[in-house]
Amino acid sequence: MLHFEDIEVGKRIAYGSYEVTREEVIEFASKYDPQAFHLDDEAAAKTHFGRLSASGWHTAAMTMAMMVENMKNVRQAGLGSPGIDQLRWRKPVYPGDTLRVESEVIEKRRSKSRREMGIFKSKAEIFNQDEVIVMDFITNGLIAVRYPDAPIED
């Protein structure tokens, strides 16, 4: 089980494989982002996307699915997340694309108000099958400290 003490700044991991389907793009957009370029081939062809594209929010949801699947394989004492920073949709995601994640821990610190908790930031980059970054963001993770009575270093 991975705890705060095990988190290494600079460590990079790669994981996931998510095939984007036309049906899922339309289903997600119909429910959460019903813009024409996510729903209709003809309308999408008239935009800068050139064809039906996934909602950015759908891309974020597919990424979350890969992150949770990875957490099943790399168990950690996670305590949730207070959010993400600097979310950017870099390139469109299309039906037929296969997505994957690369993540690098960029900082970590102990919580001063909750000794049992650590906070770490990771930069997540989501790639398509052509190794093009389609989305990136900074994750903020909360994780249990194995030794909460240990001194907090500044």
Rank of each mutant, 00 (worst) to 15 (best):
K123T: 10
T98S: 12
M62K: 01
L39I: 07
S122A: 14
I84L: 09
S55G: 02
L2Y: 14
T59W: 00
L87V: 15
G118P: 04
L142Q: 06
T21S: 14
N140M: 14
I13P: 03
V93Y: 02
L87N: 01
A14Q: 15
A36K: 11
S55E: 04
E102T: 14
K121S: 11
N140F: 03
E23S: 14
M135D: 03
E104P: 01
T59D: 04
N70D: 13
L99P: 03
K108E: 04
R109P: 00
T21P: 03
I152F: 02
V68W: 13
Y94L: 03
K11H: 15
R115A: 14
E24Q: 14
W57G: 08
A45N: 04
K46T: 12
M117N: 00
V25D: 09
K123L: 15
L79S: 02
W89Y: 13
E19T: 15
R109H: 10
S111D: 02
W57H: 07
P82V: 06
S103I: 07
A144L: 13
R146Q: 13
G10S: 11
E131H: 08
E131T: 07
G96I: 05
A124R: 05
V105S: 01
E19L: 15
M67W: 06
H48Q: 11
G118I: 01
T139C: 03
M135S: 11
L39Y: 08
L142P: 07
H58R: 07
P92M: 04
D154M: 08
A45Q: 10
N73D: 08
A43H: 08
I106G: 07
A45C: 02
D33T: 13
N70V: 00
A14R: 15
V145L: 02
I126Y: 08
E27W: 07
I13H: 12
S53F: 03
N70C: 02
I152M: 01
E116C: 00
D41E: 12
V134M: 05
L52V: 06
N140R: 12
Y32N: 12
D33Y: 13
M66E: 08
V20H: 05
K91S: 10
M1N: 10
V145R: 15
I138Q: 06
G118N: 02
I138L: 10
D154C: 00
G50A: 08
D40G: 10
H48V: 12
R115Y: 00
A60T: 12
H58M: 13
Q35L: 14
V101R: 05
I26V: 15
V74M: 06
P95A: 03
I126P: 05
